[in-house]
Amino acid sequence: MVSAYIGLGSNLDAPDGQVERALRELDALPQTRVVARSRLYRTAPWGGIAQPDFINAVAQLETGLDARALMRALLTIEHRAGRRRDGERNGPRVLDLDLLLYGDQRIDDADLQVPHPRLHERVFVLVPLAEIAPDFAVPGQGRVRELLARIDATHEVVPADEAT
């Protein structure tokens, strides 16, 4: 079994429900269970496209699936939720699942990069990840809490139940 961390996000079609549903589907994957999850966080969108705020979370899985099989499963869950990868980057989406970390492995292929290549600069990933794994050492980057301390996270990400 390998510990893997998944970033979850949605800003369309009842985002809170989309993320909660995806968490249940992750827990139902073969040889896999969700062992920890963050709260839901509300995050302002970035990338210059006008769109609703996102709901983000991170889940820790224990899985017997290899990294590629897990990534295929994530894409299947996204597709079932209605996600269509049409080439638009940073736009609104019904569900986004990112394989952030897969144990201490480093994978750098055309179709899969682990750790996620922008994990260390994304506050909407680091805040929920730090909630459940602050001392996890991201291969080649440092501990999660140290990565979070390097960026300004004070105004961009707030717990969804505290957002106004």
Rank of each mutant, 00 (worst) to 15 (best):
S10G: 13
R122W: 12
Q51C: 07
L148K: 04
G17F: 07
L40W: 12
P134E: 02
V35M: 04
V157N: 07
A160D: 14
V158R: 15
R21D: 01
G9C: 13
L26D: 01
R93F: 14
A22R: 08
D53A: 15
L129S: 03
L119R: 07
R85I: 06
N11R: 07
R37G: 10
P30G: 09
D98V: 09
A81I: 05
A44R: 15
A110Q: 14
G47W: 08
T63L: 10
V34F: 12
H116D: 06
R150L: 14
E62N: 02
D27F: 05
E78F: 12
A69V: 10
P128L: 07
V125Y: 09
P45H: 09
L65R: 04
A44W: 08
P117W: 09
R24E: 14
P115R: 07
E62P: 02
R150T: 03
M71V: 07
N56S: 03
A81F: 08
V58K: 02
Q51W: 10
D98G: 09
R89G: 00
R85T: 00
S3D: 13
T164H: 04
G140C: 09
L100K: 05
A59Y: 08
L40I: 02
D108N: 13
R145S: 11
L75A: 08
N11S: 06
G7L: 11
A149L: 04
A130I: 01
I49D: 07
D13S: 11
L29Y: 02
M71E: 00
A36F: 03
D66S: 03
Y102G: 00
R72K: 12
L101V: 07
L8E: 03
V34A: 07
L100I: 11
E156P: 00
D104R: 15
V157I: 09
R145M: 01
L65H: 05
L65F: 11
